[in-house]
Structures are given as structure tokens and as C-alpha cells.
């Protein structure tokens, strides 16, 4: 009889953390611990002596975990980057999905696989959602700036909205820049002048 695996998830965003924990719990009998704050990360993780540590590949605090991979580190059980051996393909899939995993030395591949399969699928979805969100926010932000620039032009030159946009678009084409960039320059400049 093997005891349940202990998995530490390093994730600051609460909603993301919940999504990952829920998915992992469905994949088997696993104890999941979430660490949100990254100060003193290596020591916090060591205190739980986990079997697996999962962290977003884009998290700059990931370098703090590298201390755990050294033999002289603070943990009794050395942790290895999850990279080599039979699980090589899985490790590559993990990197592509945006999750890095640290696994305690000697843990059997068949125990790691279900956890990693789940983690990879979940991080993959989260990464897509994040990209979409960032794109949407950027588009919204640009729309707002363009609207402000149009308003400025309408007031300053006494033109209607359609014509104001045409002026912006023409300037953008002439200068080989994006309409949003020209609009931003105009908004900034007018802020300085007023």
C-alpha cells in the first residue's frame, strides 16, 4: 500500500490555483498544497516535503526552486527537475504546456504519469485562457485610446467621428505605424499641451 502523493502547487492567482487543485484531485488520491506567496519559497516547500512540485514556467520565482535540486540543499530528499529517462516525452509536453515539475528522486514513473498528464492538460487550458484574456484587454485598451484620440480631433478640427478616424488612419499609413500607436501619441501630446 502506497501513501497518497503530496503535490505542492506554486501559484499566486487564486482562481488558477483552485482550477489546478480541482483537476489534480480528480486524477487520484493526492494531497495538494498551494503556496501563493513566493518569499522564502524553497523553505516553505521543504517544510511540506512534497513528492512533486508544480510551478508555472513563466513564474520568475521558479529559479528559487533550483536550490532544491542541489544535493547539499535544505531537503533530506533531493528533488530533481522532471526531465529525463522514460518520462522524457512527458517532460517535453510539460514544458510546452507551460508547467515545470520538480519530482523527488526515485519516485516511480507510473506514479508520476497520471499527475503530470492532468497537470499538463490543465496548464495548457489555463495558458490559452490567459493569452485570450491578454489579447482582449489589449484590444479594449486600444479601442479606448482611439476613441479618445477621435474625440480630440473632432473638437480641435470640427470634424465628425468618421472623418476623425480617417485622419488617424491616414497618418498611420503615412508613417507606417498602427492606428492605435498614432492615437496614443496624439493623446499623450495633447495631455502635455493642455
Amino acid at each position: 500500500m502506497t501513501s497518497p502523493l503530496t503535490v505542492v502547487v506554486v501559484e499566486q492567482d487564486r482562481d488558477r490555483a483552485i482550477a489546478i487543485v480541482d483537476a489534480l484531485k480528480e486524477s487520484g488520491e493526492i494531497e495538494v498544497i498551494v503556496i501563493g506567496s513566493t518569499s522564502g519559497l524553497a523553505r516553505k516547500i521543504a517544510a511540506h516535503s512534497p513528492d512533486i512540485v508544480l510551478i508555472d514556467i513563466d513564474n520568475p520565482s521558479r529559479d528559487m526552486l533550483e536550490e532544491l535540486t542541489m544535493a547539499s540543499g535544505p531537503m533530506d530528499r533531493p528533488v530533481a527537475m522532471f526531465v529525463s529517462g522514460a518520462a522524457g516525452g512527458l517532460a517535453r509536453a510539460a514544458v510546452e504546456a507551460g508547467v515545470s515539475a520538480y519530482v523527488v528522486d526515485g519516485l516511480q514513473p507510473e506514479r508520476i504519469k497520471p499527475v503530470m498528464d492532468t497537470a499538463i492538460a490543465r496548464f495548457h487550458v489555463l495558458r490559452q485562457m490567459r493569452t485570450e484574456l491578454a489579447e482582449t484587454q489589449r484590444a479594449l485598451q486600444e479601442r479606448k485610446v482611439i476613441d479618445r484620440a477621435k474625440g480630440l480631433l473632432m473638437k480641435a478640427r470640427g470634424v465628425d467621428e468618421e472623418e476623425a478616424y480617417a485622419i488617424l488612419r491616414k497618418a498611420a499609413m503615412n508613417q507606417n505605424r498602427r492606428v492605435a500607436d498614432v492615437a496614443e501619441a496624439l493623446v499623450t501630446a495633447s495631455g502635455l499641451l493642455s
Partner: peptide, 12 residues
């Protein structure tokens, strides 16, 4: 985003 990710990007 980090030195470990940079190393993995090159290794993989």
C-alpha cells in the same frame, strides 16, 4: 522569465 526556464528553452 527565469534562468531555469531559459535553460529548459535551450535544452528542449
Amino acid at each position: 522569465p527565469s534562468w531555469s526556464s531559459l535553460r529548459d528553452m535551450l535544452s528542449f
